[in-house]
Design a protein around this nucleic acid. Structure first.
Lengths: 175, 175
DNA sequence: TCGTGCGTTCAGAATATTGAGAACGATCGT
DNA sequence: ACGATCGTTCTCAATATTCTGAACGCACGA
């Protein structure tokens, strides 16, 4: 059973499920993940399905996805034939894996297309200017994201560092 | 007419349309935006619809959304009765507006639910530990995002600064 | 080797999202 | 004041996504 009151767990499960769309995983997957995070002992597939009111099939697919993301793991339970699942302690990892994939599929092609457009002969005046500017911006973003993706470990502490960084409150002269 | 070859513009429009899902705007809206970015002179609604092969209705709604995001503006064209549209130079702004909204709707409730869960009496051992850890992480993320959202201007230069930051390659001792 | 329990897969149902196009209302020139 | 032009809104159709549940296959015990 969960470590807190059922209602609080329930609320967390739903909120997490809704947030899934932020990083592009679907509601069921996120809800399964949330339930495992909120539960101490390993859960069997069927219990997960029952608790979340989803079909066994759906639960199975969701668990598979979570395993490929590396955020859920199967464990053996003595005297049990069924598979049991627990969450990995590092959620961070999931964000990385997903971010990486989305970047590859959605961001990279767009950046490439912009570059093609900027480099194209015939790109003139204002259009060229703003596209160049945008290409620069996206390239910067890409650089930052790549750094983060390269090394989950240190990016985490980098994040904490950035959180403490003094930008945004003092005058910031040059653009 | 666009500032570059039609094919390159086309490619950009499609790539940008596909990338839309990354920040949560739909394909049509993103494509309209892309077309305006790639076009020097103001475009009338009907021409946009024709170029993108979408209905006038859809174009109208898309333009409205882009205007509320503040990335597209209506302009008057001498001797024309129709409305014409141009893109604002600052794309950055759009990301901010959208990010802000999604944070409010998706992220904040989840963070709140986690806190409730951690604070709940009855939260025990391992579960409590990992939820606390996650709450910390998300709170840090929230802090960073809030900073960015607060001030588009300086966050932009902060981004450039971060891009040049030397994390990730040297040993990074503590947590 | 057969029967049972279990997990996975997959076709198609249910649902959510997106888009088309008709209907409408506003504005402008005459 | 009337017709023509244009933009917006809204209903319903098309499409994409998500989910269910039946069918299947595997492993184990008898």
């Amino acid at each position: 059973m969960p470590a807190a009151t059922p209602e609080t767990v329930q609320r967390f499960v739903e909120a997490w499920g809704a947030m899934g769309s932020l990083w592009g995983i679907n509601r069921s997957v996120a809800r399964v993940h949330a339930l495992l995070m909120a539960t101490e002992e390993p859960l069997a597939l069927e219990e997960i399905a029952e608790r979340l009111q989803i079909s066994k099939g759906n639960a199975s697919m969701s668990l598979r996805e979570l395993r490929t993301f590396g955020v859920v793991r199967q464990v053996e339970v003595a005297g049990e034939r069924r598979d049991f699942y627990v969450t990995e302690p590092d959620v961070w990892l999931m964000f990385f894996r997903i971010l990486k994939e989305r970047k590859r599929r959605e961001f990279d092609p767009a950046l490439e297309a912009i570059h093609a457009l900027v480099d194209a002969p015939g790109a003139t005046g204002a259009v060229r200017g703003r596209l160049e500017q945008m290409a620069d911006l996206l390239t910067t973003v890409e650089g930052v994201v790549n750094r983060f993706l390269q090394d989950p470990q240190s990016s985490r502490s980098a994040l904490a560092f950035i959180a403490g960084m003094p930008f945004g409150r003092r005058q910031n002269g040059k653009g």
